[in-house]
Amino acid sequence: MTGPSRHERLDVVQSHRDSHGVVLVLYGDLDAGTALKLEQAAAQLFNTAYPPEVLFLDLSGLSFLSVGGARAILAVHESAGMSRVRVVTGDRPAVREFLHATRFDAVLDCYRTRMGAIAAGSRSEFMSRVKTIWEAG
């Protein structure tokens, strides 16, 4: 009998979808051997007639994150097109510290909680705030 495939070490679960965003929660190990599973899940969302305005990648269920996994997150970020990608690190110091030590957090839009990521607002809310600031100045 053979053991589980490398793909099975990562579960990517769509936990929520509405008109503004989709939440993908990652459970298990995100590394070079499982990165393709994340990239394919994101590509399915981005390559539709109505891609999400925001993709929330919730990493709070990860038990392991490698450089290969962080590169997969960056690849999802770079392939998002008009969608925004927000990364939720959760209460996993290893995930937050890894993204900080590798400086991926300087490129990615990272939040400690899902509520914080959601509270950051939509693109239309952001543009409205920018317009208000410009008009006031």
Rank of each mutant, 00 (worst) to 15 (best):
V76P: 02
V54S: 09
L62G: 07
M82E: 12
A94R: 11
A75R: 14
T89E: 11
R92C: 09
L59E: 05
R71Q: 14
D91T: 13
H77S: 04
V76H: 00
V76N: 04
A70K: 09
L62V: 10
A80D: 03
A72S: 15
A80V: 04
S63Q: 13
V54E: 02
H77L: 05
G90E: 13
P93M: 15
L55D: 01
A70E: 08
D58A: 05
V67H: 11
E53Q: 15
I73K: 06
G90Q: 13
A80H: 01
V85C: 08
D91I: 01
L62H: 00
R92E: 10
H77E: 06
G69K: 02
S66Y: 05
R71Y: 03
S83G: 08
V54H: 02
F64M: 13
G81I: 12
V67W: 03
I73N: 05
F56H: 12
F64A: 13
R86E: 04
G69I: 12
P51G: 12
G90D: 07
G68Y: 04
R71A: 12
E53C: 06
D91L: 05
V87Y: 00
G68D: 01
A70V: 09
D58W: 08
I73E: 03
L65Q: 05
V87P: 00
R84C: 04
A94S: 14
S63F: 05
R84P: 00
E53L: 08
R71G: 12
V76Q: 02
P93V: 14
S79E: 08
V85F: 03
E78K: 15
A94Q: 14
S63D: 15
V85H: 00
D91C: 09
S66C: 09
P52E: 04
A72E: 06
G81N: 06
G81R: 07
A75L: 12
L59N: 08
T48S: 15
L57Y: 03
A70Y: 03
A75G: 08
N47Q: 15
L59P: 09
V87E: 00
G69W: 06
L57H: 08
G68A: 00
M82F: 01
L62F: 02
N47E: 15
S60Q: 09
A80E: 03
G69C: 09
V76S: 07
L55H: 07
T89V: 14
A49R: 11
V87M: 01
L62D: 03
G90S: 14
L45A: 01
V67L: 14
G90H: 10
S79V: 05
P52I: 11
V87L: 05
T48N: 02
V54R: 07
L57P: 05
A75Q: 13
F64D: 07
A75F: 04
F56D: 03
S63R: 13
G61E: 08
M82Y: 03
A49S: 13
L55E: 02
S63M: 12
L74T: 10
G68I: 06
D58S: 10
S79F: 01
M82A: 14
H77N: 13
G68W: 00
G90R: 09
L57F: 03
